[in-house]
Amino acid sequence: MVAVTSAWSPRNRRFPQGPTLSDGTGTRWILKRNCCLTPRQLLCMYAVLCVVSFGVGLGFWASGAHLVLPFAWIEMAGVGFALWIYARHALDRESIVIIGGRVEVEQEVAGRVSRLSFDAAHVRIDQRGGSAGLVELSAAGRRVSVGRHIRAQHRSQLAEELRAALRGSYGQG
């Protein structure tokens, strides 16, 4: 099964071609973080930054300023730690699929994937914290919150699209 993988866009208010699966059997939302660099690009940028910083530190070391190089190491260790945390979450995403009477929610956070499946007929959609809060799907005593990767003011739009898709009227009217 091949699906439209475009991220939800507030400018389009819906997916560019509607969030339907290409075989027409269901609906899918893929919500991703807005990251400008992939982890690989981030690693390359960090390597260049280290070369420049250590080059400057070595230049000062050769000039007799011996404390610059240790501080360059400390600085690059701190920057490396911050970039490592950023890279762990750069590929975070949420996927919501409504297909065949089921609602499948998959969330990836820092490389850990969790999946929940609900019977579409019993799913309830709420918003915690008002119209800017996360969208919560619940059924049979289980619940999951989605919408972390879209702006708060657009979460109510996501909730309405989910409700419409569950009613089977997505894209009509």
Rank of each mutant, 00 (worst) to 15 (best):
P39E: 04
R33F: 01
A62L: 13
G80Q: 02
G80I: 00
T27G: 10
C50R: 00
R40M: 10
N34P: 11
L37G: 06
W73E: 06
P70L: 02
C35H: 08
K32W: 00
L21N: 07
V48L: 12
D23P: 02
L67N: 07
A90H: 06
E75V: 06
S53M: 08
A77Y: 00
L37D: 04
Q41F: 01
L91R: 07
R28H: 11
F54E: 05
L83E: 01
V68F: 07
G59M: 03
A62E: 05
A62S: 08
T38Q: 14
R33Q: 10
E94S: 12
K32G: 09
I85W: 08
S63M: 11
L91G: 09
G57V: 00
L69T: 02
L91F: 03
G26W: 01
A62D: 04
V79M: 14
A77F: 08
W61M: 09
L83W: 07
T27N: 08
C44N: 06
I99F: 03
V48R: 14
L42M: 13
G26V: 03
A65T: 02
G64L: 04
L83R: 04
M45D: 04
A72R: 03
G55Y: 01
V68N: 07
V79D: 03
G59V: 00
G57W: 01
S53L: 07
L83N: 05
F71A: 08
D23Q: 05
A47Q: 06
C50Q: 03
R93V: 07
M76R: 02
R102L: 09
C44D: 04
A47M: 09
G78H: 00
Y86Q: 15
I74M: 15
P39R: 13
D23T: 02
S95T: 15
